[in-house]
Amino acid sequence: MPEHDPETLRPSGMTRRQFIKSVIAAGVVTCSGALFSGPAGAAPAGPPGAVERLITLDVNGQQRRVDVLPHETLAQTLRYKLGLTSVKIGCDRAECGSCTVLVDDVPRYSCSTLTHSVRGAKILTVEGLTRPDGGLHPLQQGVLDAQGFQCGYCAPGFLMATLGFLKTNPDPTRAELAHGVSGNLCRCQDYDKILTALQNGAASMRKA
């Protein structure tokens, strides 16, 4: 992805305010973007004078243009600006994995990844798994058939961590898969059923 300088991107003569307005009018950014700009419970956002820059992200196979602060995390961008609410923020500090997404096929904690660092990368969230016709990805289908998870708050993160792990090891043992998703916390602690369901999902993927 080429890097855009915000100044060169802006049509000349337009103030920043007008520019943002025109972007919103064009439906590029969702309205809630500015509402939450930092971690919940944190001090005022960002270094002084930090300004958003319009960048393009490759998310779930789509080119999404979005204004991003220098210190903005990928979780904030995906959740609050692009409306991808499957990305859950359980801890906001790399402890729980509920925000896991794939960045170029590698599972990453999006709460601890700066959005600017993944320009040009392919980002995948759970929303991107479902087929356009609403059909489930074989991993999702396998988990569904086995009634995996309880409250499901951790589920999107587990699914993405599993998918990333299966890229490197498509036919893991139960113990290998447990290691593969051990960066994800489930507070319902339904680990036994989760593992069974994820293994079922992995099997569906091998058949698909």
Binding site: C31, S32, L84, T85, S86, K88, T125, V126, E127, L129, T130, L136, Q140, V143, L144, D145, Q147, G148, F149, C151, G152, Y153, A155, P156, L159
Partner: peptide, 22 residues
């Protein structure tokens, strides 16, 4: 055993928890 009616939404990211509302 059966598949509960709320599970699909949890696995597709369409389940709306309180903070997901705008």
């Amino acid at each position: 055993d059966y598949v509960t009616p709320d599970l699909r939404a949890k696995l597709t990211g369409t389940a709306r928890f309180s903070e997901d509302f705008r």
